[in-house]
Design a protein around this nucleic acid. Structure first.
Ligand code: ZN
Ligand code: ZN
Ligand code: ZN
Ligand code: ZN
Lengths: 134, 134
DNA sequence: CCTATCCCTGGAGTTAAGTCCAGGGTCAAG
DNA sequence: CTTGACCCTGGACTTAACTCCAGGGATAGG
């Protein structure tokens, strides 16, 4: 299969596949005489692996580490894999906490705003942002 | 006060203050003979406004809109301000939902991994990423 | 006057993950 | 042989919010 078919099977752009190759995440199985990349179903699986990891929040750099472990599965301990996963979980939890904090603060000051058509002279949102204290 | 004092009072770098000026968020109250920016306490409040809005998740572009409304408070309705706040809340909620989804999925496959020192040949995390289906 | 510390401008570099482009080659069908 | 669909490379561009740099000027203290 050539690059266009691989890309469309995975719902990504051709450029993305080439970009992953440049990042050493995905190597084509070979090339035609004319220089076209050819991919086997192994490459298809690998691309899907990458995309699944991405959907879980891993960066491409982290996915590289996962792939390194996967390729050498026999000699790598579960603990190394789990460490990566747990670090990512921690990342996600931090982001969740920060977003939760923002959400709570913004909800508080937004609820206090009437949202009407009268002038925002005493708008609680602007006031909260402009407050003297803190 | 000059730029260094303003910046340190707000815990940002001098470059950041100048960057906000380039983005038309914060104009110095004046300049000295020698060309140094000078800031009044009004500018200090404005910078704090910007930083508070940032801490709630607003981008600099959105903060510009907030400032536009704030400057013309008398002629702008509360509804315009509340609209911006609610749009931002929606943003935050979407990110929370996406991160929540990731967290749940990743927790599921991570919990199933033993995390031990034996080879990752059957590691549930690698298996989940490499699975044939879906 | 000398020095240290501040400040100025314009422009380039950073990060992540692509996306797009120009200018050209390959391949299969008709 | 020509057309159209596909592919190649190298490099530039995008977004957001800074951050840093070079090369120079301003200001205060001793
Ligand atoms: Zn109101
Ligand atoms: Zn209001
Ligand atoms: Zn295990
Ligand atoms: Zn495992």
């Amino acid at each position: 299969m050539q690059i266009g078919e691989l890309a469309s099977k995975c719902g990504v752009r051709i450029d993305t596949v080439r970009y992953y190759e440049k990042q050493k995440l995905l190597v084509p199985s070979g090339r035609t005489e004319g220089g076209y990349r050819i991919y086997s179903t192994v490459a298809l699986r690998e691309l899907r692996f990458i995309l699944r990891a991405k959907s879980l929040g891993f960066t491409l750099k982290e996915i590289q580490e996962l792939l390194t472990l996967k390729i050498d599965r026999e000699n790598q301990p579960c603990s190394s894999v789990k460490e990566l996963a747990e670090a990512k979980l921690k990342d996600i939890e931090e982001k969740l906490a920060e977003l939760g904090r923002m959400h709570q603060a913004l909800t508080g000051i937004t609820d206090a705003c009437c949202g009407g058509e009268e002038p925002a002279t005493a708008c609680s949102i602007l006031d909260a942002l402009d407050k003297e204290d803190s």
